[in-house]
Design a protein around this nucleic acid. Sequence first.
DNA 1: CACGAGACCTGTTCGC
DNA 2: TGCGAACAGGTCTCGT
Length: 275
Amino acid sequence: MPELPEVETIARTLQQGKADSPSLVKHKITRAEILWNRTIAEPAVKDFKRRIIGQIIQKVDRRGKFVQIHLSEDVLLIHLRMSGDLIAGEGKEPLGSHPRLVIYLDKGLQLSFSDARKFGRVWLVADPDTITGKLGPEPLEANFTAKIFAERLSARKRQIKPLLLDQAFLAGVGNIYADESLHLAKIHPLTRSDQLSASQAATLLKSIRKVLINGIKSNGASIDWVYRGGGYQNQFRAYDRAGEACQVCGTPIVRMVVGQRGTYYCPDCQVQVIG
DNA sequence: CACGAGACCTGTTCGC
DNA sequence: TGCGAACAGGTCTCGT
């Protein structure tokens, strides 16, 4: 489920709280229950349980697709991968349909990491940079300019879509928002990154920002049973729309596989540059 | 360096 | 209805 807008939505919810979800801030961790050992990437399960007890949650935010829960001593990093979700609430029974890690807090609260496919991972580290340090720039940060983006694109010779999915190149964009950005920018998913003009690079960065911001405004996208709450799927231009008319030109949207990922594009609007 | 295939996993949907 | 195949918001590792 999670790309930048979905992760941002979850992090904000845990930070601020909302009607059905208490804020985690200022709560103290009393215990950790681990229901699937491989969920814990670092440190060893036994050390994880011991070390997290007594720490106080100070802030929840995001870096790339990682949720960062800042504690009094450490940072808890959570990557939701394909099917992970974080649910805050009350009670002693693990929340969610597939709980893998439950962090119990004071005042009867808990934070449950539910993850059907067991791909998600959690790190408890003193310095988050040891994990997130390899990530590329945040697409929404103002100091990430079109010029820098263009330079990074021309430094590589890769197909643009898989490059956008490379978290070391750009942090936070996933399969849906890559397709949506490329459609909005009218760039074919297989275009080589070093073939993009400066103006195309600028357009692409604008498009990426637009779809991410709109995704956040909609609280992310809910396309199947995994995620709940978001509404961005109602604004999809290309993703999961094979056979439907392109909103711009009416040509049917095509699905192909690029880098083993389903890829949707308009064969008329998104013309591949030959070279 | 760029790319494709296989792993890691479970749940849902599709086609016959 | 049943049952296997195909597919899924991600990322890592290996071989070419």
